[in-house]
């Protein structure tokens, strides 16, 4: 894959005339940025702005890729809900992007990706027959199928049980290596474990938060990671009050 672009967002966003946030945000190329902040502060809005989706508000400022090429159709997107279509098989769901564009899907690649997320034997199953973790893995494979240099994850693991979540985090880091990733999360532990860069969003702006020196994927039993997570949690609670 060619080098993925970084992304720069700078500006303010208004919701019904009220300033929601004023922020400068840089997503470094090929790294994981974790975006935290209390509910309603506009984390998902930032993600939607860069994706070019409707936000219901007004944005003044600029959003640009570091390589100067427009961002349209260069960002893969994975949401909290798996958004698998219940009437399609897992394999067909993986290929939905091509179907929606009216082109022929690359079934061999889909099969390879299913294998990579550990669902090779469930290709013909309907989503209803899968567990929550399996469904999220299928959604991850669908995101990979789009093969975009930038990937946005909007709390994709928050509905999973702790064990499955840890597995999914490891899988995501492995398969998304080399891409520019923005992960919106509520979970300080998740951010501390995965991030190259942590950003805490509040009405005052987007502030970076120091991450441990060790590279992701970090072990949560590591003292430095543990203390980072605790301090981050304290900070977030302070912001809330």
């Amino acid at each position: 894959m060619t080098l993925p672009p970084g992304i720069l967002l700078s500006g303010q966003h208004y919701l019904e005339g009220q300033l929601l946030f004023k922020a400068e945000l840089e997503l470094p190329a090929g790294e994981w940025t974790c975006l935290l902040g209390r509910s309603g502060v506009g984390k998902s809005t930032i993600l939607r702005l860069i994706l070019g989706l409707e936000t219901g508000g007004r944005f003044e400022g600029s959003i640009a890729a570091s390589d100067g090429v427009p961002l349209d159709r260069r960002i893969g997107y994975m949401a909290q809900s798996d958004l698998l279509l219940p009437w399609l098989t897992v394999l067909e769901n993986i290929c939905i992007g091509a179907r929606l564009r009216g082109t022929a899907p690359d079934l061999e690649r889909a099969q390879v990706l299913l294998d990579r997320v550990g669902l090779a034997d469930r290709a013909g199953a309907k989503p209803a027959a899968l567990s929550g973790g399996m469904r999220q893995r299928a959604a991850l494979a669908r995101t990979l199928m789009e093969d975009q240099p930038v990937v946005f994850l909007d709390e994709p693991f928050s509905a999973l049980d702790a064990g499955t979540r840890a597995d999914m985090q490891e899988l995501a880091v492995e398969v998304l290596a080399g891409r520019t990733v923005l992960l919106v999360t509520h979970d300080p532990a998740e951010a501390t474990r995965l991030a190259d860069q942590i950003i805490v969003l509040s009405a005052a702006g987007a502030a970076p938060w120091p991450v441990p020196a060790s590279p992701p994927l970090r072990s949560l039993s590591d003292p430095e990671t543990l203390s980072c997570q605790t301090r981050l949690l304290d900070h977030l609670r302070g912001v809330t009050v």
Partner: peptide, 9 residues
């Protein structure tokens, strides 16, 4: 949203 991000027709 998902469909739009995929460039759906």
């Amino acid at each position: 949203d998902l469909a739009q991000s995929m460039g759906a027709k």
